[in-house]
Write a protein that binds this DNA or RNA. Structure first.
Lengths: 111, 111
DNA sequence: CCTTGACACCTAGAAACCCTAGGCCTAGCG
DNA sequence: CGCTAGGCCTAGGGTTTCTAGGTGTCAAGG
């Protein structure tokens, strides 16, 4: 079950990363769950591969961090990632507008 | 190119069908394009298989119509389809709320 | 007559994506 | 020591969308 995310995962991850600043995957999952009030409870098998994909695409950069004795990979937005986030964000808004236009019952567009 | 629809196609088709009443695939494509002001310009290879899928799932029903001399398959929402549309619609709203929560910069939730 | 373009339907296969279902390791607590 | 939480990972399956074609009708124009 859970929420169907198709295609919007990148947007969510990039946006969450912008909000939290540099952080690691596990914390990102918690941030998404907390901030969305439980709507987005993503399995690790969804998030980690997505982060790898985003890194391959140059939208995030990662570095290992062992300060706490725990092995963590910290991710950070790149400039390209910030640009991509902005683009995806306006795509998202266009989608929302479009869907609203279809969902809204009739009422033609008077000048 | 075009707009990325992943996962929302069913919602759009069912909603468009509710709006237009019984109609055929080709007209549905035009309705989606017109009502969304060009945002949704779906290829036939996307819509026809989707309609077949929805019919297999019992959400729409179809009947051939040759009145105009043109071979058309007219689709119509079933009761199940209307219910599914309502469900998908609230799922969509939940998604929109969730994404908004992630996109919105900080500003904790004070009681 | 013949060609072009709009109308109208269809399928096969590729590509992308998300999720299930595991596995591996460490820190801390009882 | 055993257990739980933290933390990372991959392989493979199932679903979905799009690309790229194919078929045929109707109407208008040359």
């Amino acid at each position: 079950m859970s929420m169907d995310l198709r295609g919007h995962l990148d947007l969510l991850i990039l946006a969450a990363l912008r909000h939290t600043g540099p952080t690691h995957g596990y914390a990102l999952i918690q941030a998404l769950r907390d901030r969305s009030d439980g709507t987005f409870d993503l399995p690790e098998g969804t998030v980690y591969p997505a982060l790898h994909r985003l890194e391959r695409a140059g939208l995030v950069a990662s570095a290992w961090n062992d300060d706490t004795g725990r092995r963590r990979r910290c991710y950070e937005l790149t400039d390209q990632g910030r640009a991509a986030l902005a683009a995806k964000q306006s795509e998202w808004h266009a989608l929302v507008r479009g869907v609203a236009a279809i969902l809204t019952p009739a009422q033609g567009a008077p000048a």
